[in-house]
């Protein structure tokens, strides 16, 4: 979705590793006891990050028991260690190694918690019902234009989008289902779903611009 030439140019530039990152890479790419020890330390790091994230996302509002939280953190850390080791060659030293590794644990914890929150709940895929777009709360004087705008959006969703785009847009935007939950239900990935959402949004915006409901966006209109 973005011209990658700039990123490619940056990726080609040599990067000097900081001392700590060099030690991590050397140990994880090594052999024997030193590598085993580095993997253990990496696991501890991932557990710490996962616990931090679980606490951050659940403080004060969760039914997550301490024991389940701990299991969740350990499972997240296990997967994160595997992901870090599998993608070690992707690390080029453009950030600290620990920052790079943390993101795998944070992503894993976030996905697990979102899916857990929707466990046992039906994911609404019926595009006739849009609770997040239903009541505007507009005053009578303002209702007409607001309803016309939202009405045109509904029309565009029905008429402009493909069935898959409609399903994804309405489920994610109309019902507020987390993208990782829908990705699991549809056996796809966050990135693939977001691409569908992006294409749907582009079509809807173009329709509303053409219908005169919203102004043409500036330089980004032709993304």
């Amino acid at each position: 979705m973005v011209d990658p030439s700039r990123a490619a140019a940056e990726a080609d530039a040599p990067v000097a590793l900081d001392v700590e990152s060099r030690h991590w890479l050397g140990a994880l790419r090594g052999n024997g006891a030193a590598r085993d020890d580095a993997i253990l330390r990496l696991h501890e790091l991932m557990v710490r990050a996962a616990r931090f994230e679980i606490h951050r996302r659940t403080r004060g509002v969760s039914d997550l028991a301490a024991e389940e939280a701990d299991i969740l953190a350990l499972e997240t850390a296990d997967d994160a260690v595997v992901a870090v080791l599998a993608r070690l060659d992707d690390f080029r030293g453009e950030s600290r190694f620990t920052t790079w590794a943390y993101k795998f644990a944070l992503l894993g914890a976030g996905v697990r918690l979102r899916r857990r929150a929707w466990r046992g709940r039906e994911v609404p895929l019926d595009h006739n019902d849009w609770p997040l777009l239903a009541d505007t709360g507009a005053s009578p004087a303002e209702e007409a234009e607001t309803y016309a705008l939202l009405g045109e959006l509904r029309t565009a969703v029905e008429e402009v989008l493909t069935p898959h785009q409609r399903e994804v847009f309405v489920t994610l935007i109309g019902h507020g289902v987390p993208i990782d939950v829908l990705a699991e239900r549809l056996s796809t990935t966050r990135s693939a779903l977001y691409k569908t959402l992006h294409d749907a949004r582009r079509k809807l915006r173009a329709h509303l611009v053409e219908a005169g409901f919203i102004p043409l966006a500036g330089e980004g209109a032709d993304r």
């Binding site: 979705m1 935007i173 990935t189 949004r201 915006r205």
Partner: peptide, 15 residues
């Protein structure tokens, strides 16, 4: 509506 329609500029993918 702008939030529903997302950003207008070019954007990265999730990956």
């Amino acid at each position: 509506l702008e939030r529903l329609l997302g950003p207008t500029g070019p954007e990265l993918s999730c990956d």
